[in-house]
Nucleic acid binder design. Structure first.
Lengths: 152, 152
DNA sequence: TTAAGTGCAAAATCTTTGCAAATGT
DNA sequence: ACATTTGCAAAGATTTTGCACTTAA
């Protein structure tokens, strides 16, 4: 699998050492299109990885622009792989996020770009965050299935 | 001042008792167009108001749709008066927020409505949150003044 | 009077810090 | 070998809970 190689490159480019925690975290996040919270990552990783290390790993990745942070409904930080992370050092994640209020998953809708906002005079923009709260595809389907069953 | 009366009405309409903490908090938030964090409110209120009561006051107000919660850069909850709070029970705050990365103030840009987002099939929206990070008018002016002084 | 709201103490979470030991280059 | 990263313990910060007391209606 070339992915591990890619992660190695990615870490190297960012002057970070290629440690197992870092590779694992990148692997998990790359494989999903969801943003995952620190507590959830902790569950996935099991107790092989120290919580503090995870905190540090995530904030390092965020500083380097490898991951971006999305705050969900509760203000919990969720992390997702930056599709543009290979391009630059800059923290740019100008796509829409979707937070399902049923399953709490945070989706990165990479294809949906954030429209331009005309700020009042004197205000200058550094970055933008647009998050839509609602019911995701999967939860909507579950609800539909449930109703079907009920009516049969 | 008719405001206190208004707050009384507002509380009554929401089946909440007219207590001094609630009136004070509403007064503070109504007078600003900024969203204020729990710690900042606590500072303003002084130790006359218990921290726990403040937490409960804010979350009650949010549930009732009297205040809306905006998460700033750090994921800290900031609360602002809902301009539409008089209309309905629904939590609708579809305007843009601005979080200054210099002074950390969260502004409600009520006049800036959030553009419509076309979600992928199967996703349904309940509410939307758009927050722009950057430098606010006041901080930009301070920077300009500083440069002027420096060059004279 | 009495249900709702408050204040205090204490628990539960969440996040950061300091430092010695381990690890990648 | 040496700077970086990790793990642990502990501190700090934030938020919630339980319960007796108080207050608005």
């Amino acid at each position: 699998m070339a992915d591990l190689e890619d992660f190695g490159d990615l870490l190297e480019r960012n002057h970070l050492k290629k440690t197992s925690t870092r590779l694992t975290v990148l692997g998990i996040l790359k494989s999903k299109r969801e943003a995952i919270s620190q507590p959830d990552l902790e569950k996935i990783l099991g107790k092989g990885v120290d919580r503090v290390t995870l905190y540090r790993t995530l904030s390092t990745f965020e500083e380097k622009g490898i991951l971006h942070k999305v705050l969900d409904l509760n203000g919990t930080a969720n992390y997702a792989f930056c599709s543009s992370s290979s391009h630059s050092h800059k923290h740019q994640d100008e796509h829409v996020h979707f937070n399902c209020t049923a399953c709490l998953t945070v989706y990165c809708l990479d294809e949906l770009k954030i429209p331009i906002v005309n700020l009042p005079i004197g205000y200058s923009s550094q970055s933008i965050n647009l998050i839509v709260y609602g019911i995701c595809n999967s939860c909507n389907e579950k609800a539909t299935d449930y109703l079907k069953k009920k009516n049969n």
